[in-house]
Design a protein around this nucleic acid. Sequence first.
DNA 1: TGCTAAGATTCGAAAACTCGAATATACTAT
DNA 2: ATAGTATATTCGAGTTTTCGAATCTTAGCA
Lengths: 114, 114
Amino acid sequence: MTQELRRFKAEIFQALAHPTRIAIVEALRHGEMSAGQLNEQLGLEQANASQHFAVLRSKQVVVSRKEGNQVFYSLRDPILLEVLNVLKRYFYSQLSHTMSMLKEIRMDKGTLKK
Amino acid sequence: MTQELRRFKAEIFQALAHPTRIAIVEALRHGEMSAGQLNEQLGLEQANASQHFAVLRSKQVVVSRKEGNQVFYSLRDPILLEVLNVLKRYFYSQLSHTMSMLKEIRMDKGTLKK
DNA sequence: TGCTAAGATTCGAAAACTCGAATATACTAT
DNA sequence: ATAGTATATTCGAGTTTTCGAATCTTAGCA
């Protein structure tokens, strides 16, 4: 089961392992949107976007609902937004880490120049 | 920048998008371990494991430290464990969702058979 | 019945990933 | 120096992803 759980997690990560798909998930943060709206807002090619939707659907990250001519997507479980938020924190902590490293390097250079 | 952030997130997800690498990260939950310990505990081939270590290193998920003959790995930032924990919750919520769906289906079949 | 708009699917090529086998590197001990 | 142990890297084959182009499919409308 723990093996199974890891496979499951890996699949979710896989589903999110593309900037475009992350953009889609983030765009759905506040509720459902139609495929067309997403394409326009994110500046995506129709076919390409549809392929990314398919990936997200197949991994159950989003669900779709048909209304007349169009298809509306929404997050299946908003808990995934938490994942993205944690990563944002991670990003900034990495960033500040990197920046303080850069600062140190600059300071070293400074002392050397003296 | 938001574009950059998405690329960054995608890279992290990519790094975690493999059951073996998830296993490695989880094994490092309680602190550093040598490559050999990891290989043994997780039952990995030496070369394959080393390749996965390289991926995790390149995406800055783990850091390594050399001590004599061996190399010790540890998580660069334990915040990533939170990501995995959130996903575990997600997994179980999906699971119970699926199971209640199955139950419904069984109930339908039951009524039909009657 | 045709026409159009919204999406999905299929196809082929290029790129990226994954694995085991072989080889290389770095230490340690003899 | 030589041998052995721990780990990394390279290589080649097989698989998967990604993309744009072209082609469906479906719903709404004249």
